[in-house]
Design a protein around this nucleic acid. Sequence first.
DNA 1: TATGAATGAGCATTCATTCAT
DNA 2: TATGAATGAATGCTCATTCAT
Lengths: 188, 188, 188, 188
Amino acid sequence: MPTIKTTPEAILRSSWSLFHERGYKNTSLQQLADAAGLGKAGLLHHFGSKAGLMHAVIEYGIEWYRTRVLSIARGEGTIAERLTAILERQFQLVQLNDGGGCFFANMILETGDGAFAEGLVHFYKEWNTTVTTLLAEKFPAEEAKERAYRIFVDYEGSVMLFKLYKDTSHLTRFVSRTIAGLETPLNF
Amino acid sequence: MPTIKTTPEAILRSSWSLFHERGYKNTSLQQLADAAGLGKAGLLHHFGSKAGLMHAVIEYGIEWYRTRVLSIARGEGTIAERLTAILERQFQLVQLNDGGGCFFANMILETGDGAFAEGLVHFYKEWNTTVTTLLAEKFPAEEAKERAYRIFVDYEGSVMLFKLYKDTSHLTRFVSRTIAGLETPLNF
Amino acid sequence: MPTIKTTPEAILRSSWSLFHERGYKNTSLQQLADAAGLGKAGLLHHFGSKAGLMHAVIEYGIEWYRTRVLSIARGEGTIAERLTAILERQFQLVQLNDGGGCFFANMILETGDGAFAEGLVHFYKEWNTTVTTLLAEKFPAEEAKERAYRIFVDYEGSVMLFKLYKDTSHLTRFVSRTIAGLETPLNF
Amino acid sequence: MPTIKTTPEAILRSSWSLFHERGYKNTSLQQLADAAGLGKAGLLHHFGSKAGLMHAVIEYGIEWYRTRVLSIARGEGTIAERLTAILERQFQLVQLNDGGGCFFANMILETGDGAFAEGLVHFYKEWNTTVTTLLAEKFPAEEAKERAYRIFVDYEGSVMLFKLYKDTSHLTRFVSRTIAGLETPLNF
DNA sequence: TATGAATGAGCATTCATTCAT
DNA sequence: TATGAATGAATGCTCATTCAT
């Protein structure tokens, strides 16, 4: 077994951070390599190409969300408590990296050519399924699905304004109206 | 009177289109110049730098919105009619340039360093003021402001999903629930 | 009219020399640019790519042969005199650039993928046509064609041995037997 | 006794093939290693360096020629029969590897710096000695030597044209005139 | 107003090679 | 004997920008 100086996970973590903060195109392999603590060639040895690294980072990010954020949905507490916990956990990510906003939303809007579309869709589907399941404890299936959809849309729009103004009130207002909305009938 | 080959406005129009479709960083001066029908040096002669061109494009975009989209608010018809007209006019832009989404949202999320934040804030403020004024015909001032805010957030989130899936149903569903929402009490 | 520091012809001349001496793959843009007296980006500004430069160099080499070597065929003197003059003029090129051999033969054998095959075929055809025409002054058309073909084959084989041994006797022996061969019947 | 996955000879065979097809500079250690079925480091473990591998390949190629091609000279049949057999055996090699031509000629013309000159000279000397000996059965020593020399030169020139045009008629015409030439007096 | 030449920094990627295991 | 990790230099090429004309 050869010497491993830098674990792949550490590379993914630092790369995620950089992509989040600076965007895909605007982050160079040099910066990625410096942050990971090895040379450019070493990075490519592990991931083949910058795009390959990005794919791995997206998968890593999805896994991170799954185990650290979305898992809350299957925990204890009322629906409102669990939903609040999920959203606030997400806000920690959103505020990281110089207020970088939502990593996945950034990537969706930047990489319009669709090179990473599959991975990004995967993220959305997992998020949506989890929250829909959570809301289905209280609402009929169809309504739960629509509510989860609207929360997601509201969330991404709010994060965009947070990123523009660097003002967290856009995030807290979002949580307030989301939780309050649970007690309001939905017209659809 | 010498021949005018390329008017500044034509340059701004083609540049807007390119920035919209490909993003700021991912669009090169070469591409911008080709699209505008003059040399790179000619472009820079007019706008000083790529960033200078971008600033001008943002101003041009705001002006475009003002005269072509937001002006509808001060036209004739019911509130619902005028709001629908505004949103559908925006969708034309959103679907342009290979389904490029919202130019302003793209720029907000891509150019995280804030170099163009001022112009982008300017766009949001103008949009928000106009729609707030429109809704104030029917709702109290504070409620009108909150409703305009929520529509904007919902709009940007929906556009993001449209861009991810290249599916216009995300846009039509947004209009439906926005118009329907005008008849529903707002809890805030 | 902008300032021209380096004429395209000067670039082609220095590049030809380098490709001749070191081969296509083994010559870097850096070396080419240094030899031409401008930066890598300046080189590419003129020729688009390394392959584009190579194409231009091949055309330049063909033109050089046409005006400086093959033109002798339409000059004065006996057939033997003109043929000798042509071959000896070629030897000057062959011995240039550290005994680099025949530029065209080198490129044919190195760039086997056929990227430059068209230009190289062009060279051979022009050479062949010229020498065939020269020999047709003395021999029937078909025989002239066959003799030109054999001279070319013999020439390239001889140059290869010259390059291997760095010994010009391979070239002088080739001229001797070629000229002597003009007085010998051809069996074919 | 441990399992032998890759014999050195198998490595040399696959490497020969690659160098033949793609040239020395244009073949990477990665490709060599992939073709040989082991890692880059494994290859270097056996041969020290890429150049070391090349030296071994040249020796292997010479040995191959000796036992598989030139040995025919000491077999049975008329001189013309044996010479034809040798040349046609060579053509099989020439047409291998995507019509790669003569491996040794390619290397002579590509590696102009002379790093492998010794090995390549070795090949030529062995070929020349063998064919000279064969022809000495019919011609005086000096004439046999000259005839062998001319056949070699003619051969390499013909292979070059074959490689340029991917047309085997250049090879068959060469054999025809070589065999016919055995019955024609030589002027030298 | 607009050009084409030129630049220097930076890009992602490939290279042969080293080394601990 | 053979591996995978890692490296540093070099590759062809693109970038925004400058400048004389």
